[in-house]
Simulated assay, not measured.
Amino acid sequence: MTEEKFIPKPYSKAVEKGNFTWSSPSNIALVKYWGKKERQIPENPSISFTLNNCKTITKLTFSKKQNHSGFSFEVFLDDEKKDDFKPKIETFFNRVEQYLPFLKDFHFKIETSNTFPHSSGIASSASGMSALALCLMSVEKELVESDVTSSAVEMSDEFFIQKASFLARLGSGSACRSLEGDLVVWGKHDEITGSSDLFGVKYPFEVHENFKNYQDTILLVDKGEKQVSSTVGHNLMHGHPFAQQRFNQANQNLSNLISILKEGDLDAFIALVESEALTLHAMMMTSMPYFILMKPNTLEIINKIWTFRKNTGSKVCFTLDAGANVHVLFPEKEKDGVLKFIKNELVAYCQNGHYISDRIGFGSKLL
């Protein structure tokens, strides 16, 4: 599979204007990717739970313009114009233009909103970039299917999602894992047929009932902007003394997770997921320059979870993304007990007592 597959044949451009609205969720990686090659290619494969409630809703309105010089677009977040979002979208458009050659033919109005607070410290780039990629694919589908001269009059659903995932990756790496659910793999892995560095794929193997409708409560420890961006962090893996061992470990952990998910082994799941989270942050602490994104309250929460698990036999565990917030993962049957524990013991460590109750979801939706 090569990128050339996603370069379209010329279309007749019969469409003058229109709009599409997509919702796309965030996701949380179980096996993390940290470190990337050129053009958003991951150094190691990753797998994530797709979330259900934390999502971005994006409406893309487009109208034909007379000249074809440069990109023309405006961006709104919650009905407020956001010019500071434009450079990131301009970079994205430049990266994907050869795959979406209509981009300079239209003026776009991008209206976006999140179901979670924008400054909540939840990565909105995954949900935001995947929602935008889906809207753009809907425009291309319209152009392809209104072109009566084309032999490929219909675009398959499989190709639509695959190309949208490919495009989303060029905006934000982990965005390619947000289009489907409930488990998505991104990155070539020898044991997972169809896996690719170019786009995310639905996890193809058997998953035990223990992991169905898994719960994720996100504890918002720190809503501030990270002092080191993920892009900078990824780049610090070039020349990192432990980089190669880390990439090998991630591959091995994904292999191990295949049997864990099949057998429903919750203890092995906990050990692997928590180890992955701490290894991610260990990479940050041992890069040059080194940095720490965890906060004191992150560590307080982790220790509380360990104590609770030891005292009760609960199967609750934590994972972290590249930030201070804690994702508390647990089986659905423990929901009442774990939420009570969160309210009684963990909310005190959240900024302004804020947390978000979520669970596994099944991806994006055309609205």
Rank of each mutant, 00 (worst) to 15 (best):
G70H: 04
E80W: 02
F76E: 15
F62V: 03
K59D: 12
N67H: 15
I57G: 10
F76C: 07
L77M: 13
V75P: 04
K86V: 08
K104G: 13
F92D: 00
L103T: 14
D84V: 03
T58G: 05
E80G: 04
L77F: 12
F85H: 06
K109F: 08
D84S: 05
P101V: 01
D78R: 09
F93E: 00
K81V: 10
F62W: 10
E80Q: 12
F106T: 00
F62I: 00
L103V: 13
S69A: 08
D83I: 14
S69Y: 06
D84L: 13
I89C: 05
K59G: 08
H68R: 06
D84T: 01
K65I: 05
T58W: 10
Q66K: 08
K88G: 06
N94T: 12
E90V: 06
T61A: 09
N94V: 10
N94W: 14
F106L: 00
F85R: 03
K88E: 02
S69L: 10
F92A: 00
K86Q: 12
T91V: 06
D78T: 12
F106M: 01
F108I: 01
K65N: 06
K86H: 11
L77Q: 09
V75T: 08
N67L: 05
R95K: 10
T91S: 12
D84Y: 01
R95M: 03
F73M: 04
D79T: 11
T61S: 12
K82P: 15
N67G: 02
I57W: 02
E74I: 05
I57R: 13
F102T: 02
D105N: 13
Q98N: 14
L77T: 11
V75A: 03
T58V: 09
D79S: 10
P87S: 10
